[in-house]
Write a protein that binds this DNA or RNA. Structure first.
Length: 560
RNA sequence: UGGGGUAUCGCCAAGCGGUAAGGCAACGGGUUUUGAUCUCGUCAUGCGCAGGUUCAAAUCCUGCUACCCCAGCCA
C-alpha cells in the first residue's frame, strides 16, 4: 500500500461495524473473517467498490481474511463472463481474496442435506401452490397470510417429493420447498419463505447436476457459516432478512455462527447504480458496453482513466452508516483529481487546432526544448520539439485586443503570451479564409525567453499550450461527460433512459499531441496541461492510431 | 393504516449527557511559465418538529412529522 493509502487509513472515520468488531475482539474473537459476495449477473460498479473496500479493508485492518464468494444461486441470470469480470475487477482494485474463489454452488450438496434436516425436524415442507396462489396466501403487509394446504405433509412425503424435485421429475413452478415459520408474521420474510425452487437450467459452475436451486435466504447465511465468516456485511434492504438469516443459523447444524450487519449502500448523483439498469444501458446500446468510460462500473471507470487508488480513496472517505444519502459526484471527482494531479505525467495536446506561425523562427529547423514531466514532483524531463509551424487551441485566440488582461489571459492581437515551457511570443497578425474564419495566427517569439522572463514591457497575458505542427502527432481524443443530465436519473415518474445526456460522448479526430505520447502504453494517464486528465485507451490506443480518453477536466475556478 | 430503518451546514458526515470534528462544494486573499497545484482565511447560538427530565440534552424520556426498505419461485 502506498503512503497515500496509509495516510488515509489513519484518518479513516471509525464506523459502527469496526466498533462492533473491536468489541468482539475484546471479548475473545480470534480472527475476523469477512466476505464480498457478488452474484455473477452483471459487472461490478462503484457501489460494489464501496462494499469491496469495506469488506477487504476491514479484514486487512484487523489482520483477518476476506473471501471472494460468488452467490451463484440463480443460473437463469448468471454467466461465466461475469464471474471472470468480477475477479478481474476485484484484483484491479488492489485486493486479494483469501484462498480460492468460493462459490455458493459448491455448497449445494450441503444445502440439500440441510433441507432434508429441516424436513425431518418438521421445519420445512414441499408446497404445490402456484406462484399466484402463494402470493394470495402470503397476505398483505397489514393482513396476515394463511397456511398453505400442503403445510402438514409428512416428513417422508416431503423427503420423497424434494428428491424428485431435485431429479427433475416435476415442472418448473409446480413445487417449492418452504420453511415452516409463521404465515402471520409482520415480517413478510418469515411467512414460510421459499428455500428451493425448480429451475431446469444449466448452471455455469455445476452444469446440469441440479434441477432445484436454493433461494438467497436459504443460501447466504449458510455460506457464511461454512466459511467461518464472522461479520457478514450487507446493505440495508437485507435488514428485514436478518431474522430469517438467524433462523437458519439456529435451526441448522452449521459449523459457525456468523452475524449479519447492514450499512447504507452508496448512491452518487447523476448516475445509476443498479445492475439491472446498467445491464439495460448495455443491452439496448445506449453505451458501448459494460466498460464504456461513461459507465459507473469498475471496468468503465478503469477505462475512463480513474486509478484504483482514487476509487479506493473515495470509498474509504465514505461513511459506513445506516443513512441512505446521495453523495455528490464532486466528492468522487475530488479524489480522482487528487490522485491524477499527484501522479499523471504532464504533456501538451491541442484539441481544436489552429495554426500558429512563428514568423521569426527559421523554416525546417527544430529546437529541442526540455520540460519537466511534473511541475512539483521529480519525475524527470521530456523533450519538446519547437518549430516554425505550431498548433495552438482555437479557444486561446481572440481578435478583440480590448479584452482586459486581467480577465482574458489568452492571445490577442499585438499582445504577449507565454508558450508553455517555451518562448514568450507576440501576436502579429492572422490569415483568414474566404468565409472570414481564421486559418493561421502569426506571431514572433521574443529571443531568450525560454526559462527566462521577457524584457520589461513584454509581460505575457498568460500561458498557453502548443504542439509542433511538423513534429507532433495527430490523435483521436474522446471526450466524455456525465451520462445523465439530472441529479437522480432513476427517481421520479419517467423512464431513467429519458434522462440520458445526448452529449455525453464526443470524438475528436483532429487533435495534436506531443510526439512522445503515441508511444505511451495503454492505460497511461496524462495531464494535458490546461485541458484536463487523459488516458491512453486500454483497448484501442496504439502508436499508429493514438486514442486518448478524457478522464476529467481540471478544476476550473475561472469566472466567466 | 403491519414490520424494519433513518433524520446534525448545499452534499457526505463525527458526535455515545458537559456546552456542534472533518471532508466535498462555495466564497475571499497569497504564490504560480497549467485560470491547475499549493497555501491562508470565511462558512451550524444550531442538531426534523413539539414538549419533558437535568446544574447541563444533538445525545435521555414522551408524542408527532418526513423519507427509505419489505407483498420475486431475484439477490
Amino acid at each position: 500500500m502506498s503512503n497515500n493509502d496509509a495516510n488515509n487509513a489513519a484518518t479513516q472515520p471509525t464506523n459502527f461495524i469496526h466498533q462492533i468488531i473491536e468489541q468482539d475482539l475484546e471479548q475473545g474473537l480470534e480472527k475476523v473473517v469477512t466476505r464480498f459476495p457478488p452474484e455473477p449477473n452483471g459487472y461490478l460498479h462503484i457501489g460494489h467498490a464501496k462494499s469491496i473496500c469495506l469488506n477487504f479493508g476491514t479484514a486487512e485492518k484487523y489482520n483477518g481474511e476476506c473471501n471472494l464468494r460468488f452467490d451463484d444461486t440463480n443460473p437463469s441470470k448468471e454467466d461465466q463472463e461475469y464471474v471472470d469480470a468480477i475477479k478481474e475487477d476485484v484484483r484491479w482494485l488492489g485486493f486479494n481474496w483469501a484462498g480460492e474463489v468460493r462459490y455458493a454452488s459448491s455448497y449445494f450438496d450441503t444445502f440439500y442435506s440441510w433441507a432434508q434436516h429441516l424436513i425431518r425436524e418438521g421445519n420445512a415442507y414441499v408446497c404445490d401452490l402456484s406462484a399466484e396462489q402463494a402470493s394470495e396466501y402470503r397476505g398483505w403487509a397489514t393482513k396476515p397470510g394463511k397456511d398453505s394446504p400442503y403445510r402438514e405433509r409428512s416428513a417422508e412425503d416431503n423427503l420423497d417429493l424434494l428428491e424428485r424435485m431435485k431429479t427433475g421429475e416435476f415442472d418448473e413452478g409446480s413445487k417449492v420447498l418452504r420453511a415452516k415459520i409463521d404465515m402471520a408474521s409482520p415480517n413478510m420474510n418469515l411467512r414460510d419463505p421459499i428455500l428451493y425452487r425448480i429451475r431446469k437450467e444449466s448452471h455455469h459452475q455445476t452444469g446440469d447436476k441440479w434441477c432445484i436451486y436454493p433461494n438467497y435466504d436459504f443460501a447466504h447465511g449458510q455460506e457464511d457459516a461454512i466459511e467461518g465468516v464472522t461479520h457478514s456485511v450487507c446493505t440495508l434492504e437485507f435488514a428485514d432478512h436478518r431474522p430469517l438469516y438467524e433462523w437458519f443459523i439456529e435451526h441448522l447444524p452449521v459449523p459457525s455462527k456468523p452475524r449479519q450487519y447492514e450499512f447504507g449502500r452508496l448512491n452518487i448523483n447523476y448516475t445509476v447504480t443498479s445492475k439491472r439498469k446498467l445491464k439495460q444501458l448495455v443491452d439496448e446500446g445506449h453505451v458501448s458496453g459494460w466498460n464504456d468510460p461513461r459507465m459507473p462500473t469498475i471496468s468503465g471507470m478503469r477505462r475512463r482513466g480513474y486509478s484504483a487508488r482514487a476509487v479506493r480513496n473515495f470509498c474509504d472517505s465514505l461513511a459506513v452508516a445506516k443513512t441512505d444519502g446521495i453523495v455528490d459526484m464532486a466528492q468522487f471527482e475530488f479524489f480522482i483529481r487528487e490522485d491524477l494531479n499527484d501522479n499523471a505525467a504532464r504533456a501538451m495536446s491541442v484539441l481544436n487546432p489552429l495554426k500558429l506561425i512563428i514568423t521569426n523562427f527559421p523554416e525546417g529547423e527544430v529546437e529541442r526544448l526540455t520540460a519537466p514531466v511534473h511541475p512539483q514532483k521529480d519525475m524527470g524531463t521530456r523533450e519538446l520539439p519547437f518549430t516554425r509551424e505550431l498548433y495552438m487551441d482555437r479557444g486561446d485566440y481572440n481578435e478583440d485586443s480590448t479584452l482586459s488582461r486581467k480577465k482574458f489571459k489568452k492571445l490577442v492581437p499585438g499582445d504577449f503570451m507565454r508558450l508553455r515551457s517555451a518562448y514568450v511570443i507576440k501576436a502579429t497578425g492572422v490569415v483568414k479564409d474566404d468565409s472570414g474564419e481564421i486559418t493561421e495566427v502569426h506571431a514572433e517569439l521574443i529571443p531568450g525567453t525560454v526559462g527566462e522572463n521577457p524584457p520589461e514591457g513584454m509581460k505575457p497575458r498568460g500561458v498557453m499550450h502548443w504542439v509542433s505542427a511538423t513534429e507532433g502527432k495527430q490523435a483521436t481524443v474522446r471526450v466524455y461527460d456525465r451520462l445523465f443530465n439530472v441529479e437522480a436519473p432513476d427517481k421520479g415518474e419517467g423512464n431513467f433512459l429519458d434522462n440520458i445526456n445526448p452529449d455525453s460522448f464526443t470524438e475528436m479526430t483532429n487533435c495534436w499531441v506531443e510526439p512522445g505520447l503515441v508511444n505511451a502504453a495503454p492505460e497511461t494517464t496524462f495531464q494535458f496541461e490546461r485541458e484536463g486528465y487523459f488516458v491512453a485507451d486500454r483497448f484501442e490506443h496504439s502508436a499508429q492510431t493514438p486514442v486518448f480518453n478524457k478522464t476529467i477536466g481540471l478544476r476550473d475556478t475561472w469566472k466567466k
